[in-house]
Amino acid sequence: MKKIYTRPASLKEAHFHYCPGCGHGIINRLIAEVIDEMGLRGKAICVAPAGCGMLVYNYFDIDTLESAHGRGAAVATGIKRVRPDNLVFSYQGDGDLAAIGTAEGFHAANRGELITVIFVNNGVYGMTGGQMAPTTLKEQITTTTPSGRNPVSAGHPVRVCEVFSVLDGTSYLERVAVNSPSGIKKTKKAIAKAFQHQINRTGFSLVEILSPCPTNWKMSPIESFRWIDEVMTKQFPLGVIKEVKC
C-alpha cells in the first residue's frame, strides 16, 4: 500500500505540547517537511526562541540551539558566519522579534545576513500568559491591556514585514496565515522560498506567519481561525511584501 502521509524525518517522535488549536504545531511540521523535501536535514541549524516556540528543539530532529529572548538573529548571524554552507534559521515569536529583539532582527536584516527568520505572529505573549505583544491589535484585550490596547499609551501594532521591507539587505518577505488548508499550503511554499533565498545567497529572508492562539484569545479554535481572516489580516495584510529576484 502506498504511504501518502507520514511523520517527516526532521521531526522527532514526540507529542507537541501546544494547546488545542495552536498554530505552532502546524508550523513546526511544515518546516520539517520543507527541510526533508529540500534534502537539508544534515545542513539545517535552528535557533529556538524564548516563548511558546521555545521547545521546538524537542520536536525538530535537527541541530538546534536555544537563544536568549530576542537574540535569535544575532546568534544565527554568529553561526552562519562560521558555517556559511549550513541552512541557519531562527524561529521567533512576536515579542521575541518585534519587542525585545528588535535591534538584533533589524540589523541582521539590514546587513543582509544569509539567514531565515520564521516569525510566528499570534498577537500575544503566549507562554507568559497572554500579555500584550507589539503586534496586539488596537482595542484587543490582553492581561496587560485589560480594557483593550489603547495606542495613545500602548502604541500601535507593528508590521514587521513592512518595516523590514525598506532595508536593502532583505530579499524575501512574505506574510501568510495557517488558519485554512490553502493558507497552510501557501505557508509551506513561503518557507521553501525563504530557504531558497538563503541557499542562493540573495539576502535576508523572513516569513511572517499569522497563527491562532485560542487559549489567550479566549476563543474556540474555529473562532480563532475566523478571527485571523476577519480582523487580524486587516492590520496584517497577507502576501509577498518584498521579493528580490532569487
Binding site: 537574540r71 544575532a74 546568534v75 553561526i79 562560521v82 538584533e104
Partner: peptide, 24 residues
C-alpha cells in the same frame, strides 16, 4: 576571519555565542 561591528554589546556577545556553538 569574521569581523562584525554589531548593533550593540548585547548583539556582539550573542554573535560570539553563535560562533562558539558553531565551533569557532
Amino acid at each position: 576571519g569574521v569581523f562584525i561591528q554589531s548593533e550593540s554589546e548585547i548583539a556582539a556577545i550573542n554573535m560570539v555565542l553563535g560562533a562558539s556553538v558553531a565551533g569557532a
